[in-house]
Design a protein around this nucleic acid. Structure first.
Length: 875
RNA sequence: GGGAGUAUAGCUCAGUUGGUUUAGAGCAUCUGCCUUACAAGCAGAGGGUCAUAGGUUCGACUCCUAUUACUCCCACCA
């Protein structure tokens, strides 16, 4: 006893156990004859630090892994990080800037050297943080998306898709990020509502300076790129414009009027200015009507030489200035407030600029089809299922994927340009040369220039479940054959398109196999006000700080207690506190048990009964836990385990077997209690790995390599669980006596007498008599035929009990209470009778239901008559 | 504009093919306890016309329809 602290201090045990687990290499997996259970971690950005979303995500993965390991599976959880090209490049650029180095002054090689140096020194902190959380990742397998073999896979896949004609290069309108100076994919554009203005500009007729057409636009700064004005051919207001030219305000350039049904006659003025270079729709109209294109922007969003006097200005400064100039020249009809959506870059949050440029694209349509089928047929299951809709919607209308990025950090595109501007695609420069020489026989390796661009980060992540096991480079190796397809993928719904969908496509395309069997979508962690936790809002607690305060176990429990799959998690620190308190509760149960002095004395009947009951109760719990796990209802499962341990084990079981003050416990009961406690710790272990491991080692002497995380999960049997139902009634009996004490202010120490009116519960009460007397602190109950004078009556189900007390009995209050109950039961009887006298009910309802109603009626009548008798005796 | 989801106690959520004393839990609240494992605790209590209106049914929190509110996703209306 003395050696156990009175409070459980998580800090003192968590790192100790994690180190031991590592030391014994318990997380490492190699293929063997067991069934594999594989999870690949959604690789966090190598620049990332642990945030609440990760905590939730990784905790769920850890719970599943630990549970499956205890179920006898060969568990392999592969950790790793993503090179995150834009994010990392931006980070390194900023760090260099702080040192006074500009990226533009560096060569590609120099920059990459800095980037790698940063990665080696500072990258992947998050993986260390996962250890604090208790994650049982196979660290020997830690991968990075730019590891040599991973890069090789990416290049191989690129070449293969190119050969198949699924990758092509071309000039297209793409989403340009003027801050990161790169193209991004459609998925990386986030649309946000914005209060902006709608400007009405005057375009004068070239041949009649007294007339003008009013054009509404939200982007007046793009007029320098105008090459037409478009109206709907059915719009009679504008039919006079046929063959006319208009003068672009300020610019004073003549542009044609074109007619296209694309224009909405009801919006704005019905006339639309066309800027083919800076709007996707205008671009399409430009192609259709063979219009000229004028690019007015530099890559960084400033105006280029086509911007006339505005050259060099930022696009938004230019807007302000041009609005002033338009107004000064009386070319602005009016300005209206207008709410619209603008696309922001996911990474840099700056407004995206549509830009025509040469990029690489991946065709999605053919790959999308089988990927959709795999989910629709249920080969891959989504939890919750509702995300199938989102998935289908995207898959049915997927656009080609822009995969080139104008960055240096990433997988460089394996395309090589010949002096004649043709190009070849090959995994290495040497192979490229061979191909090149079929075009230009005299071509040398020095003549070949590799494409400057790198690939979208997701172009490597989509291979993750395969490339982690080298399944692309060596498709028949033992590991990929054993671990793939992986079992479960745990991720947020925000990357369903970026990542989940594409992994499914890649798996089916390159391996003809799905990448995982189940996808568990977590919710988003929100603060108390319902806002998404984010760095910019500063509303996210520091996870490591939380772990410090409540222990990893406490925080894990806190995260899981209220996060059903797919539902957002309104985070509240008090959940973690609850988790910490739970650890402490368990710790104290241990202290109680270890404090007993054990002797070879006879086992009390109450203990014997409690042990039998508890084993049946455990069986009931295990059944429901297995059911919950099969449906990924982890939080339900944890809640069940929580009540099971706190209420059933601590409040009921331990209280029953607890010997009287300073008396010893019999060894039989003690050993059973230890055994039960051990099972409970196993049941809880996946959720709270540290405290359970600690308790496990206190319960008995252990071999050096005996760890709870390697034991088997308790199995449920198909035995009868009759005692659990019986005990529920006994609990009610005890609680009602305690409640009586409470309401009458009788000390729990005062032993009470108890008379029970004889009925069919007599056997049950007699059976559990030893427990009732102990926990309710009453004398052995006496069975009687009638109400006892001078006592208060209690009703448990249909059993009436009489407790003789003299204190605090207020007759009027008792009468009032009884009258209320009588009224309630009378009403209840009326409603049951209504049902039973309804022929349709009696004829149509299942017999079971009807019999139940009859039983209800009977019970009610018993109660009612008892209440009436009670009332009579009081008056 | 299209689609999906949610609505149950003050808060967060269960309620599994419609039927078990006329809805459960945790937190919070209230009452009484420093009862010899635990005040990070113990024993109790209060609290809900299951969003609104209809419909199907012998019977609806549960199924259907409409309405309202919120959330999310998708979409090129300047």
């Amino acid at each position: 006893m003395a050696e156990l602290e009175s409070k459980y201090i998580a800090k003192n045990v968590e790192s100790k156990w994690y180190e031991k687990w590592l030391e014994k290499n318990l997380f490492h997996s190699v293929p063997d004859e067991r069934t594999p259970y594989t999870i690949v971690i959604p690789p966090p950005n190598v620049t990332g630090v642990l945030h609440m979303g990760h905590m939730l995500n990784e905790t769920i993965q850890d719970v599943l892994c630990r549970k499956e390991r205890m179920n006898g599976k060969n568990v392999c959880w592969v950790p790793g990080t993503d090179h995150a090209s834009i994010a990392t490049e931006a980070k390194v650029v900023n760090l260099l800037k702080e040192k006074g180095i500009n990226k533009t002054d560096l060569t590609r090689e120099e920059f990459l050297k800095h980037a790698w140096q940063w990665k080696e020194e500072k990258g992947g902190i998050i993986l260390q943080q996962l250890k604090t959380l208790g994650c049982c990742c196979d660290w020997q397998r830690t991968k990075f998306t730019m590891d040599e073999d991973m890069s090789e896979s990416v290049i191989k896949v690129f070449c293969s898709l190119y050969e198949k004609g699924l990758i092509y290069r071309g000039v297209r309108m793409v989403n340009w990020d003027p801050k990161a100076l790169t193209a991004v994919s459609d998925e990386e554009v986030i649309y946000k509502d914005q209060h902006s203005k709608l400007y009405y500009l005057r375009y004068y007729l070239a041949d009649d300076k007294s007339k003008y057409v009013i054009v509404a636009t939200t982007r007046p700064e793009t007029i320098m790129g105008d090459t037409a004005v478009c109206v709907n051919p059915n719009d009679e207001r504008f039919s006079y414009l046929k063959g006319k030219k208009l003068i672009v305000p300020i610019v004073n350039r003549e542009v044609p009027v074109v007619f296209d049904e694309y224009v909405d006659m009801t919006f704005g003025t019905g006339a639309l200015k066309i800027t083919p270079c800076h709007d996707i729709n205008d671009y399409n109209i430009g192609i259709k009507h063979k219009l000229q294109s004028i690019n007015i922007f530099n890559d960084n969003g400033t105006l280029n030489e086509n911007g006339l006097q505005y050259k060099g200005m930022d696009r938004f400064d230019c807007r302000k200035k041009i609005v002033e100039d338009l107004q000064a020249n009386n070319l602005m009809e009016k300005v209206e407030d207008y709410d619209n959506k603008i696309g922001l870059s996911e990474r840099t949050s700056v407004p995206i600029e549509p830009k025509l440029s040469m990029q690489w694209f991946c065709k999605m349509k053919d790959m999308a089809k089988p990927a959709l089928e795999a989910v629709e047929k249920g080969e891959i299951k989504f939890h919750p299922e509702k995300f199938i809709n989102t998935y289908r919607h995207w898959m049915e209308d997927t656009k080609d994927w822009c995969i080139s990025r104008q960055l240096w950090w990433g997988h460089r595109i394996p395309a090589y340009y010949l002096p004649n501007n043709e190009f070849v695609v090959a995994p290495t420069k040497e192979e490229a040369l061979k191909k090149a020489q079929t075009i230009l026989p005299n071509c040398t390796i020095e003549d070949l220039k590799q494409d400057e661009d790198v690939l979208d980060t997701w172009f490597s992540s989509w291979l993750w479940p395969m490339s982690c096991f080298n399944g692309i480079n060596d498709p028949n190796n033992e590991e990929i054959n054993y671990y793939y397809p992986t079992s479960d993928l745990i991720t947020g719904p925000d990357i369903i398109f970026f990542w989940v969908a594409r992994m499914i496509m890649a798996g089916l395309e390159f391996r003809k196999q799905i990448p995982f069997k189940n996808v568990y979508f977590t919710g988003i962690v929100r603060d108390k006000l319902g806002r998404k936790m984010s760095k910019t809002l500063g509303n996210s607690p520091d996870p490591l700080n939380l772990i410090d305060l409540y222990g990893a176990d406490g925080v894990r429990m806190g995260m899981l207690m209220s996060s059903p799959a797919g539902n957002d998690l309104p985070f509240d620190e008090s959940y973690c506190e609850q988790g910490r308190n739970f650890s402490n509760k368990i710790w104290n149960a241990l202290r109680l048990l270890k404090g007993f002095s054990v002797e070879d004395i006879p086992q009390p009947e109450s203990s014997k009964l409690a042990i039998e009951w508890f084993k049946q109760r455990m069986n009931v719990m295990l059944l429901s836990i297995e059911d919950d796990f099969s449906k990924y209802r982890l939080s339900e499962s944890l809640k069940n385990i929580y009540t099971f341990i706190w209420d059933d084990f601590c409040s009921w079981f331990l209280e029953i077997i607890k010997p009287e003050y300073q008396k010893p416990i019999d060894s039989q009961t003690y050993n059973s209690a230890i055994e039960i406690f051990e099972s409970l710790m196993k049941i809880l272990h996946p959720f709270m790995p540290f405290v359970t491991e600690e308790i496990y080692h206190h319960l008995r002497e252990r071999q050096e390599d005996d760890f709870i995380m390697n034991t088997s999960y308790p199995k449920c049997s198909q035995e009868e669980n009759k005692m659990d139902e019986e005990f529920a009634f006994i609990k009610e009996v005890i609680s009602s006596i305690r409640a009586l004490r409470n309401s009458k202010g009788i000390s729990p120490k005062q032993v009470l007498q108890c008379f029970i009116k004889e009925n069919d519960s007599k056997d049950l009460i007699t059976k559990y008599e030893s427990i009732i007397t102990k926990l309710a602190n009453i004398e052995k109950p006496t069975f009687v035929k009638d109400k006892q004078e001078g006592s208060v009556s209690l009703m448990v189900r249909t059993t009436e009990m009489f407790i003789p007390i003299t204190q605090n009995v207020n007759k009027d209050e008792e009468i009032k209470k009884i009258n209320e109950q009588i009224k309630y039961y009378e009403g209840f009887i009326v409603s049951i009778n209504k049902k039973l006298s309804n022929e349709k009910f009696v004829n149509n309802a299942p017999e079971k239901v009807v019999a139940l109603e009859r039983k209800k009626l009977e019970d009610c009548e018993t109660k009612l008559s008892a209440l009436k008798q009670e009332l009579f005796s009081l008056q």
